[in-house]
Design a protein around this nucleic acid. Structure first.
Length: 290
DNA sequence: TCGCAGGGGGATG
DNA sequence: CATCCCCCTGCG
């Protein structure tokens, strides 16, 4: 690939690894110190140099376009530190998680890619979701359109490892192709109604819908509740009592402040990282003693 | 070998 | 409404 244009931005409160590699998006990878991926259809790579974010941009347009795209995608104009601090003051039990999540950004992704990615995320893990999404894109750089996926068909998607999710993706793609579901029009709808529209698609329940609303449509009152959020919220806020996902979602929207989705992202990051640390500290001695 | 997993759908008390 | 089982695939 011929070299792109390199731009740089002064930023603070940005952790590229936490933001790009921990389960919001599935087309970024770390290669020789650069985070390589796509913003929309534009290939881009990113790296931090101190307080400077360096971006090599392979898309259309000039420096200003590149800078604007990067700023928007990483949501750099929003004061996340203030949002975290406000949540920590409101709910002191969350302070540790908020402080742990410094630099985490909620990405502004393309809604169709987000929808497909999170249908695929059902009962799945980040490396495998990433592998499948890469497979969907094939040799091309751009994410396949609904028509592309309908044309590919259930069989070839199964061949890529989608398994039981393959018919969901194809049927949902058909709904977009026919206009029965229009993602852009959801931007103008209240979160509640946009959520119901999304859930009319096969393979899209409440959790996947909330991921699309938050990561793809920038609805910050969407709070995806998966098993990690469930565990951490039950533990931190409900003395370990079992709560329904719907109950937790409603509670979060009512109590997390003006950006519940961002607080959710911080809790998710904290919960997963904590669990990973537990595994490292508890498993290592066992392996030694065997 | 087998159970199980970051979810959804459909059936059942 | 809560709970159960199944759905592909890959991993321990």
């Amino acid at each position: 690939m011929r070299p792109g244009r390199i731009v740089s931005l002064q930023v603070k409160d940005l952790d590229l690894s936490a933001s790009l590699l921990s389960g919001q998006a599935f087309r970024w990878n770390l290669d020789a110190g650069w985070y390589c991926g796509f913003i929309g259809d534009a290939p881009v790579r990113l790296r931090m140099r101190g307080d400077e974010l360096e971006a090599e941009w392979f898309g259309e347009g000039g420096d200003k376009d590149a800078i604007e795209a990067v700023r928007a995608y990483l949501d750099l104009d929003r004061d996340y530190a203030a949002i975290r601090e406000q949540a920590a003051q409101r709910l002191p039990v969350l302070r540790r998680a908020m402080e742990f999540s410094g630099g985490l950004r909620v990405l502004k992704q393309e809604p169709w890619e987000t929808l497909v990615s999170f249908i695929i995320s059902a009962c799945n893990n980040v490396p495998r979701i990433s592998r499948i999404v890469r497979g969907l894109c094939g040799d091309g750089r751009t994410f396949p359109s609904p028509a592309d996926l309908v044309k590919a068909g259930e069989g070839s998607l199964r061949g890529l490892g989608l398994g039981f999710r393959a018919p969901y993706v194809v049927s949902t793609a058909r709904m977009l192709e026919s206009g029965e579901l229009d993602l852009e029009s959801l931007r103008n709808l209240p979160t509640r109604e946009a959520r119901m529209r999304l859930m009319s698609a096969p393979g899209v329940g409440g959790k996947v819908a909330d991921c699309v609303l938050l990561y793809g449509l920038q609805k910050y009152d969407a709070v995806p509740v998966d098993v990690w959020i469930k565990r951490i919220m039950e533990g931190l806020l409900f003395e370990g009592r079992r709560m329904s996902a719907e109950g937790l979602r409603a509670w979060a929207v009512g109590n997390f402040g003006p950006y519940p989705g961002i607080i959710q992202a911080c809790l998710f990051h904290y919960a997963r990282s904590t669990r990973l640390r537990d595994l490292q500290t508890t498993c290592a001695p066992n392996t030694l003693s065997i």
